[in-house]
Amino acid sequence: MDVTNELDVVVIGAGISGIYAAKFYLDMHPGCRLAILDRDNCVGGTWNSRRGYDSFWTQWTVGTAEFSDLPMPRPPEDDVYYEFFKAKHTTKYLESYVDHHSYGGQTLRDRIRFSTEVQSLVKPDGRWIVLTKDRVTGAELVFRTPKLMVASGLTSIANMPPLPGREDFRGQILHHEDFGSSNVLSTPKIQNIVVLGGGKSSADMVYEAVKAGKTVSWVLKATDTTGPGFFLSPKGKGPYKNAFEIGMTRLAGTFNPSFMNGINWWTRLLHCSKYGVRMMGTFWGAVDTATRRDANFERESLQGFEKLNPHSP
């Protein structure tokens, strides 16, 4: 085990939140000893270059996916759809951001320790002891710090389901996390691809594989009746360019019951009264009808597409 590194601040995760947490702290304390630890080998977390691929799109609109101190250049129009844009432009922006900011002669990138996976955290004497392992060399490294920021995100560790008989399967088995860096689309030896799951990442992989000319089977649980909510039409209404912009308004935000909205006369009316519940039911029913109409699940040109029609609104 390597000697202990004494630091003032340790940030776990070099994604969007970790990068900006480090930047904000260094703005206040430019002379501090700060390190960012990340288990991957590149910047960006979910949006890093290893995990990216051409059909990976953001679910936010141009102008909202940037930090206030550095505007993101507008992507080419070919990579923009109703103001949503391809995720590779977020990747490029984050890569430039960590090189743009420097404190005490060190950029944010200089402070990132890549391929460093946190093994354990303990705080025995008022200071955090962070035990890490280098994913390339296997070497262990210990950090001691009084301040710790955890920004590892919700998608850091792949959730791979148990697959009975996988040891006898001759093909590749991989998680969405490794899809962008794999050769499943580029190699002609792989013609048939099976995708498990009904989330956005599954839909993205299906779309990318179909575009690459592969034969794709999409397997969804029969008991999954919630429906793929991300199939909502991207189109906006009125002054709003897309559905994201509508959803981010204060008014639309109150249409979902949420503790973040607080309890007041308006939320009580919408979610606690018979009239409000009926009104919300009518509103979301109209959204559901419009979504199904736009998706056109019954189209004859795509065999089996009707099976993606959600069982519930």
Rank of each mutant, 00 (worst) to 15 (best):
M149I: 15
M149S: 04
M149Y: 04
A151N: 12
A151D: 08
A151P: 08
A151F: 01
G153R: 00
G153I: 03
G153Y: 01
L154R: 02
S156N: 11
S156Y: 03
I157G: 01
N159C: 02
M160N: 00
M160A: 00
M160F: 00
P161E: 04
L163C: 03
L163M: 13
P164H: 10
P164F: 06
P164S: 03
G165L: 10
R166F: 00
R166D: 03
R166G: 01
E167D: 12
R170S: 08
R170N: 11
G171F: 09
Q172N: 08
Q172Y: 07
Q172M: 09
I173F: 02
L174G: 02
H175V: 00
H175F: 01
H175M: 00
H176Q: 12
H176V: 09
E177M: 10
D178T: 13
D178C: 04
D178E: 13
F179P: 05
S181T: 14
S181E: 15
N183R: 11
N183E: 14
L185D: 12
L185G: 06
L185R: 15
L185M: 14
S186M: 11
S186Y: 05
T187H: 04
P188S: 06
P188H: 04
I190M: 11
Q191H: 09
N192V: 09
N192Q: 15
V194Y: 00
G197C: 11
G197D: 07
G198C: 10
K200Q: 15
S202R: 12
S202L: 07
A203W: 07
A203S: 05
A203K: 00
D204M: 08
D204A: 03
D204V: 02
M205E: 09
M205N: 12
Y207V: 10
Y207F: 09
Y207N: 13
E208I: 05
A209W: 10
A209C: 14
A209S: 15
V210F: 00
A212S: 15
K214N: 06
K214E: 02
K214Q: 07
W218R: 14
W218F: 03
W218A: 06
V219Q: 10
V219G: 01
V219F: 01
V219C: 09
L220Y: 03
L220T: 03
K221C: 04
K221P: 06
A222E: 10
T223H: 00
D224I: 03
D224Y: 13
G227V: 12
G227R: 13
G229L: 12
F230N: 04
F230C: 01
